[in-house]
Amino acid sequence: MSVFTEIWSILSTAFSTTEFYTMIIESTAPILLAALGCAIAAKANATNMGMEGIMMMSALVAVLVSSALGGAGVGPWVGLIAAVVVGCILGFLVSVFAFRLKIDIILVGIAMNLICTGASVFLMYSITGDRTTTTSLISGKLPSLSIPLIKDIPVIGTVLSGRFVLTYLAFILVAVLSFLLFKTKLGLRIRAVGENENAAESVGISSLKIKTIALIISGAFGGLGGAFMSQCYLAYFSSGLIAGRGFIGLAACTMGSANPGIICLCCLAFGIFYAISMFSQSMKLFAISSYALLALPYAIVLIGVVIYSIYTRNKELERLRGLDSEEKTEQNKAVE
């Protein structure tokens, strides 16, 4: 079988199966949470490179707290709250290092990722005695939600209903974040600080405060993303659990120009390739290496970012041209 026919067979089976669509939605959610978190930070002109680490740490904490409470009942919920709190704290730490101690924010992000990678394994090992996963703990999952009425619609019902609570939350947060950024006072201030810090300072807005708030909220999103991975996607934590989702979120945020709506679309696009990658693992393949398919989402991100950068460059040039011609007409007017 040739590569092309095999790709065709993967795609045709995938797109005609309902599980594939649920896979898309479920694999979009964690990237989306990460991307939204990066977006609010990006709007305040702070690149939250540490998103990956924040997700990792909060995913582990969610599992540990939940299992300490028995892994059932309120356990996972308290775990979720703990994850968000850890996310906020780590976001705050990034802001302290970057803006109070004036360390380059990219370096702070890289350090955060390295520390969290090490610390999560250390913590996991000292508590469970296992270096790779927390499967020995019973931490449970957050429940799925079946939506009345919608669940009775054939096909669509099975895709849209019965998803994890956090999946729904992720998509709702797109609208919430849009509202926050574009319709509230805080959002206006975040955008003002992000674009021209001096302008904000000159009217008495503390840019330090605004950036700190933005990074704390960003951390909270990372916490939700982490909890999704260890409490919805899987029911345990493992060292490779986040697997670059924080970074992909960052990429999606950049491609979506930190605009929640566009970010959501970018994440869905990535989600589709995640789903293809996952779906194909269950098929018998000959021509294509299953490892190549595992790498698919990451390759797509790379291609996406390149296309995005070409696109923005052209757009910027177009804008400059537009300004030029406007200037000319204005000058002509002035002369007349």
Partner: peptide, 24 residues
């Protein structure tokens, strides 16, 4: 001291933003 992508009104009222409930 201006934010280029915001409107004139947003720039002018920055720091003393009028609000309606939660909304700017």
């Amino acid at each position: 001291m201006q934010v280029p992508t915001l409107t004139v009104a947003e720039n002018v009222t920055l720091g003393i933003e009028p609000t309606k409930g939660l909304k700017f």
